[in-house]
Design a protein around this nucleic acid. Structure first.
Lengths: 373, 373
DNA sequence: CTGTTAGCGCATTCAA
DNA sequence: TTGAATGCGCTAACAG
């Protein structure tokens, strides 16, 4: 290895040497099929070029249509063949370095296990795959610091863009620092898109109409005669939560907890104990709703006869809960696709673009007319 | 090698050219050192070095402890400070290229939406994060070709390793080609680990004891007096499926379908119609089991009174199904962690290592004694 | 302990 | 069209 390197150095790329070199290499290859083994062990463009007896530049042009193209010279054929025979696969790092931009995009989620993000991720990955870009996925486990950290790593990596799938925070301190990181990234030509609004930043976004969804939920309940409604809320620092709360309006009993099934379970248990008169509960996401259903059961309240329950998101399992959950549906997968397409869009598209996503209430078995007491 | 040799030969007549070239380059560089603005726009090590007035190498040593370390020279301080002031973030591509190996690992799953993979991915990501490596996640959407494709891309990227989370296929053709791709990757120093056995390949693996789990499921049912048991199976080309079937033993009615909720629903519907005498159904994963429960309900069979149902995996939602599902639990997240640690292990650990994972039956409400007819 | 320098694999400008 | 040369940002010998 060392020897090779120093030898290469010794050759000092003499111009004439280069030309002769290529030919000689090919000849040698024919004579002794000994292999040329670069550090990584993988076949390199250089090898392909040598094999096809063309220059590096030509091989690059044929294989990666760098600069002007090479429709079908006789050389093109040779290069293609050589590449196939050798099993050439381009090295993305080298390309990224040379082009100063890679062909991967980042996808930052809070939690892979949460079906909400899984659905979005699927959509995003599909769209990315269609464009031949790879997706680097990172989970922040709900730590805002990690979100910033990953973003900067992705930036250093020359990612083409980053999709922020998790809801923004209303905490000014973190969102401020995140905004800075985003600005730094976009300043360098990176693109950032988000699912959900990011008030403080000027980036592409796919935003579901949480407010309207929440209104529908409340209207549905009121149409069924419910007057005493409780809300099982997530952390109010999440923008999604504050929007849904805003749409729900006033006069409701609110209790907050983790945005998880367990959080929903505990909160519902507490709320039901404190306010037995409630006839309906709105959980701010389906995960919590699942917990609510379990808590209701444990408390001996029949759903929907004694208690109506509504969720948000319409995750895949919502229809399998018992009773099947009435919920505000978000076209998650579609949202993921749209967001990724925003990321991959022509660089000179007008940029801070927002795509509004309508949502609608899916009525299932967990809601019924309020029982008259 | 050949190439080196030929270059050496060519150098005989090109030596002079080489010398001049080098000098000219140096002169040009000296003449216009105007601005140092890298293409990517990001701060580079070089800038940090300049700012700290030390050499590139020193900066690299301080910041990335390349080679020997630099405990606390006065220079170290300067470099650290400069790096912080400039907001330096290292470029992974450049590092990968120079080191011939990156610090990312690949994670290939069939489907992000499937909670089975989500759980594994979470474990894997946690373990990876602890080691400071990033996870590149790709979904094959169950296309074996894509699995091979991603693997080779990850290889070209110099990924440290790749975790194959999806079950292997029993189809000799694809598994053969995959085995080749794996071999090529490991030959280059990459590490590959899998969840589930991969008979034809010699790679690290974390393998759950599907056979024992299946035995427990059957034993449980038989202890409850069930004699006519049906199996809702997934595609038999999946190794996981064939193993579970093997553990279940003979004498059961088997019907196969997609390894999804919908597949389970359809298959159960069909099986129940064709063999109304069955008193218990074993679904080969929880997703299918959810479908089975729905089908049973539609067919007017009460679970567990008229029909017992067992699943596999113990996905998070299993306890929320109604009735709560009896299932063979796999410690998915733990498996993901173990697999990732295998991937990240010291390179000279004895390699094809297998970690066996015990599984156990979780008895919940979906199974009960067989009704006497 | 610190600086110099030759590449890592590729894209791309400039010549021919 | 095609090829030679240069550099992307960084690491790792190899001097000093």
């Amino acid at each position: 290895m060392d020897e090779q390197r120093s030898r290469g150095a010794g050759a000092a790329n003499g111009s004439a040497a280069g030309a002769t070199g290529a030919t000689a290499a090919a000849a040698a290859a024919g004579a002794a099929p000994a292999r040329i083994r670069p550090a990584t062990g993988a076949v390199t463009l250089k090898q392909v070029a040598a094999e096809a007896e063309v220059s590096l530049a030509t091989a690059s042009r044929v294989l990666h249509r760098s600069g002007g193209r090479e429709v079908r010279g006789p050389l093109a054929e040779r290069v293609q063949t050589a590449a196939e025979r050798l099993g050439y696969v381009s090295n993305p790092h080298a390309q990224a370095l040379a082009r100063a931009r890679s062909s991967t995009v980042g996808l930052i989620v809070h939690d892979v296990t949460d079906p909400y993000f899984a659905a979005i991720a699927t959509g995003a990955m599909h769209a990315a795959h269609a464009e031949g870009v790879m997706v680097m996925m990172a989970a922040t486990f709900r730590d805002p610091e990690l979100e910033i950290d990953y973003l900067s790593r992705l930036r250093a990596q020359g990612a083409r863009g980053v999709l922020l799938a998790g809801s923004g925070s209303t905490d000014a301190r973190v969102s401020g620092r995140l905004a800075e990181a985003i600005a730094a990234f976009t300043r360098e030509g990176g693109r950032v898109a988000a699912i959900g609004a990011r008030p403080d930043t000027h980036i592409d976004a796919v935003v579901p109409d949480n407010v309207a969804g929440a209104r529908q939920a409340r209207a549905h309940l009121e149409a069924l005669g419910h007057k005493r409604i409780g809300i099982i809320s997530g952390p109010e620092t999440l923008l999604t939560v504050s929007q849904r709360l805003a749409g729900l309006g006033d006069g409701l009993r609110i209790i907050a907890a983790d945005f998880t099934r367990e959080g929903g379970y505990q909160a519902a248990k507490k709320l039901l104990a404190a306010h037995p008169g409630l006839t309906a509960l709105i959980a701010l996401n389906d995960l919590m709703a699942a917990g609510v259903l379990a808590a209701a059961k444990d408390a001996g309240r029949k759903v929907p006869d004694d208690l109506s329950v509504i969720g948000f998101d319409d995750l895949p399992f919502a229809a399998d809960l018992s009773p099947a959950l009435t919920t505000v549906r978000l076209p998650l997968r579609h949202m993921g696709e749209r967001a990724m397409s925003l990321l991959l869009a022509d660089p000179d598209e007008p940029s801070p673009k927002t795509i509004d996503i309508p949502v609608d209430l899916v009525t299932r078995a967990s809601t019924a007319p309020a029982a008259r007491r």
